[in-house]
């Protein structure tokens, strides 16, 4: 391939964000669960995978499956505790969960190597110069799967049920729907999927450091979804293209930035996300794809 490897690196990261934002669209936009612990599930997948692969010598595919299972199990236990609480409590609890994951990544040096970092993680397929392309294609297929599910969900009886639970949970129970069970199953599976993308992300990053699992990931995904439109299954995709893709990919790669200013880039980026969010909320309160009010 003629394209330089950093293009696939950036595109892979963008696709992971598209998946996370689409999973959040289903959790929040469709079902109404305020998950502020995205980076926790993603990070469990990321670090779980890295630790299994490098510290315990588990092969690639079993590591991927086990890391996903770990994130799924964490989601089930957390969901079991918090999902019958009100949305503010869910917000705080998921945020706290993500903080715990980030702290453990720093403190449990015997597992994660702490801030020294855990590396290096190989590509899933060793294709020589095309290994980045191989990883990108795997993530592309997985992302398309998530998008497809989100689009179909809207028109399925299950999607109607989730919307009903979001609109009025007590009323849904009154017509015989076991809402807590449905919330728990859906939250567990979609959060487990976030862990799966975390495990895949380990190969993008090569080297795992605790700053990767900072709350910035959660906030970026939320901003992307709100910008794109939380009601639409494609809101996450459009939102990521309008924020992360523009700032992390286009600006970072193609706008010449003087060497001395490169260190300010991450801060400026977050400010620009915030600015985009404010402008979109002013003119389209329900996001780019949201219905006009």
């Amino acid at each position: 391939m003629g394209l330089p490897t950093y293009v696939f690196y950036s595109l892979s990261i963008i696709l992971v964000y598209v998946s996370l934002a689409t999973l959040l669209q289903m959790q929040f936009g469709q079902l109404g669960i305020v998950n502020f612990g995205i980076v926790g599930f993603w990070g469990l997948g990321l670090y779980g995978f890295g630790v299994l692969l490098l510290q315990y010598g588990v092969p690639y595919l079993p590591s991927l499956i086990l890391a996903t299972a770990l994130a799924t199990l964490a989601a089930f236990v957390l969901g079991w505790i918090i999902l019958d609480l009100d949305s503010q409590s869910v917000l705080v609890a998921t945020l706290a969960f993500a903080t715990v994951v980030a702290d453990l990544a720093t403190t449990e040096k015997w597992l994660t190597e702490g801030i020294r970092g855990l590396g290096s993680i190989p590509y899933p397929l060793d294709l020589g110069g095309d290994s980045e392309l191989g990883l990108f294609l795997i993530i592309l297929v997985a992302t398309c799967g998530v998008l497809f599910y989100a689009v179909r969900l809207r028109r399925a009886p299950y999607g109607r049920l989730l919307a009903g639970i979001r609109d009025n949970e007590v009323l849904a129970r009154g017509i015989g729907k076991p809402t807590l069970r449905h919330k728990l199953i859906f939250f567990t599976v979609t959060s487990g999927a976030m862990g799966f993308f975390g495990a895949l992300s380990a190969s993008i990053q090569h080297f795992l450091v605790p700053t990767l699992v900072a709350p910035t990931v959660t906030f970026s995904v939320w901003i992307a979804l709100i910008v794109g439109g939380r009601q639409s299954p494609l809101g996450g995709l459009i939102g990521v293209l309008a924020t992360i893709a523009v700032f992390d990919f286009l600006i970072e790669l193609f706008v010449p930035i003087p060497a001395g200013y490169a260190q300010y880039l991450p801060i400026v980026k977050l400010m620009l996300y915030g600015l985009t969010l404010m402008i979109v909320l002013l003119y389209r309160p329900l996001g780019i794809l949201g219905a006009r009010k």
Partner: peptide, 11 residues
């Protein structure tokens, strides 16, 4: 039976 996580095509 129609309200399952995996029944995307039952509508």
């Amino acid at each position: 039976r129609y309200e399952k996580l995996y029944s995307l095509f039952s509508d």
